[in-house]
Design a protein around this nucleic acid. Structure first.
Length: 523
DNA sequence: TGGACAATAT
DNA sequence: AATATTGTCC
């Protein structure tokens, strides 16, 4: 077998004693032919040996089709034949080995990699005579790995176990073992490359890396010497050819599109925006998804957005970047006629007066609440903790709750308490959540629900009961939301001593419960 | 050949 | 679930 199809090569091979010449790559047809060859050339062998028992006996009738398909030895031989000429000489070789194995009777056979027919083989290649195929292996593509990472970031390290990850990823035929294996490798990489520079990472299909929990909150782009914002980001951005600004959007290329990390290529997994805030105010950024799989920010009227949790969130276009109270600029809000969310200063559509681009090495937005704090809310209220089935995280459940069609469950089955008065964020937020520093909240999706909606969940001056019909009753400004969130965080922070600044609470319903007397909500 | 990788065993 | 080992590939 060779990728060299030259006649001389083929002839030389045949002269040297080869039975066939197969040009690479082998097709399924080739396998079928080889299989038949192997069988017809070795009928006595296959008929004279009980393969399963590994001892010789009177020749049984020729094995039925099914039996042949299920016995591993035949296909084993096929594989060996196909693999390397040195080990492939003939099948009597294989025969000898097999009976030797049988001699060491009590030795427990290690289970070889089985060759199984997968379900899809039946679906797809009906007529392929069902040649036994090697069991397919999961290939962790960058896309798949990103999904994995997304799940991890939502679950946090401590709770990131295969089963939960599987439930979050929702990838068909990706089983728990697959994930366990990948997780093991992932953790291995985490240790192995802890404290090493980027150039030390293996360059292969993916580069495994995620900050540990410390990095989550300690991260400061300013101090990140491993990352050169200007250069890397720019090279990526130049390739941005599918940016289509909204119709009323005056697109002026930014001189310094700094806030995007390099994207994926064959050697690196995509960790777009990994650990780095993204400037919503940069028009170039609006055309690119924040994380792979997430909708881009400039998709107006797209209908349902894909999110990790399925597609349900109806609005992609008026999400606001909640950054620090001083520099979060909800650009898209204006475009979507949500002027009430704009800060007082008028916006230059060309972003000329925002002052961001002059901040060369600092992100436009900084911590408001920790990413994890929000995902606690998300997973806690959406139902990420519902354990008893394989599609645990069902965003439609949250939607139903939000519409008041379903009651808020007091307690999930694993004992995880749901807040009595939850603050509901749409699941899609998680897609817009960068790992660590900033996040995006669509204020339309901060709402109270169900029977509790008659009471304000938090200080009514800050978060009021919203009206989904006319959008009234929400925060008065983005800054108000930011203040609210910031207060949640910093107060929580103060309660916890120690590592200063990182809030990593389990969901704490005390944030949102009523004050008994006053019904004031947030504490 | 050693290492990467995913499956499989413990 | 976590960890160790194996089979396969390159």
């Amino acid at each position: 077998m060779s990728s060299d199809h030259g006649l001389d090569i083929m002839e030389r091979g045949l002269e040297a004693g080869a039975r066939f010449f197969f040009p690479k790559p082998l097709t399924l047809k080739d396998y079928e032919n080889i299989w038949q060859f192997v069988y017809t050339e070795n009928v006595e062998y296959f008929q004279g040996i009980n393969i399963d028992e590994g001892h010789q006996g009177p020749p049984p009738p020729p094995p039925s089709q099914d039996r042949r398909l299920n016995s591993l030895s035949i296909s084993d031989d096929i594989r060996r034949h196909g693999r390397s000429s040195s080990s492939s000489s003939n099948t009597s070789h294989g025969k000898r080995q097999r009976s030797q194995d049988g001699d060491h009777g009590n030795k427990k056979q290690k289970r070889p990699y089985k060759k199984l027919e997968r379900k899809e083989d039946q679906d797809f290649g009906k007529k392929t005579t069902s040649v036994p195929l090697k069991k397919t292996r999961v290939v962790w593509t960058t896309q798949l790995h990103e999904k994995f990472l997304q799940a991890l970031s939502i679950l946090k390290m401590a709770r990131a176990v295969p089963k939960r990850i599987q439930a979050l990823m929702k990838v068909r035929r990706l089983n728990r073992a697959n994930i366990a294996s990948h997780l093991q490798k992932y953790r291995l990489y985490q240790n192995k490359y802890k404290g090493t520079s980027e150039s030390d990472y293996p360059r292969r299909r993916i580069r495994m890396r995620l900050p540990d929990e410390t990095e989550y909150h300690d991260y400061s782009p300013r101090n990140d010497l491993s990352y050169d914002y200007q250069n890397r980001a720019q090279s990526r951005l130049r390739t941005q050819d599918n940016f289509r600004p909204p119709h009323n959007f005056n697109h002026v290329p930014s001189a310094r599109p700094q806030y995007h990390q390099e994207g994926s290529n064959d050697n690196f997994m995509a960790q777009e925006n990994y650990g780095h805030p993204t400037a919503v105010t940069n028009p170039e950024n609006l055309g690119r998804s924040w994380m792979s799989g997430a909708p881009t920010m400039n998709q107006p009227n797209v209908g349902a957005c894909q999110s990790l949790f399925g597609s349900s969130a109806p609005l992609c276009d008026n999400d606001l970047n909640i950054g620090s109270t001083t520099n979060a600029i909800p650009v898209m809000a204006e475009l979507q006629g949500m002027a009430e969310f704009l800060p007082n200063a008028s916006l230059d559509p060309n972003f000329g007066n925002l002052g961001f681009e002059s901040l060369q090495n600092s992100p436009p937005s900084v911590d408001i609440a920790s990413f994890d704090a929000f995902n606690e809310i998300l997973t806690g209220t959406i139902g990420g903790e519902i354990p008893n089935n394989d599609n645990a995280l069902d965003i439609s459940r949250m939607d139903e709750i939000r519409k008041g069609n379903k009651p808020v469950e007091e307690e999930a089955e694993d004992g995880f308490s749901l807040p009595h008065n939850p603050l509901y964020l749409n699941g899609m937020n998680s897609n817009f959540t960068s790992q660590g520093e900033s996040f995006v909240v669509n204020p339309n999706y901060i709402t109270t629900v169900g029977e509790y909606s008659t009471k304000a969940l938090v200080n009514p001056n800050m978060l009021q009961q919203g009206n989904e019909v006319d959008n009234s009753g929400w925060f008065n400004s983005v800054n108000d939301i930011a203040d609210f969130l910031f207060n949640q965080t910093s107060e929580k922070e103060n309660e916890e001593e120690g590592d200063g600044g990182y809030v990593n609470p389990e969901f704490d319903s005390s944030w949102f419960v009523q004050d008994g007397e006053n019904n004031l909500g947030a504490t």
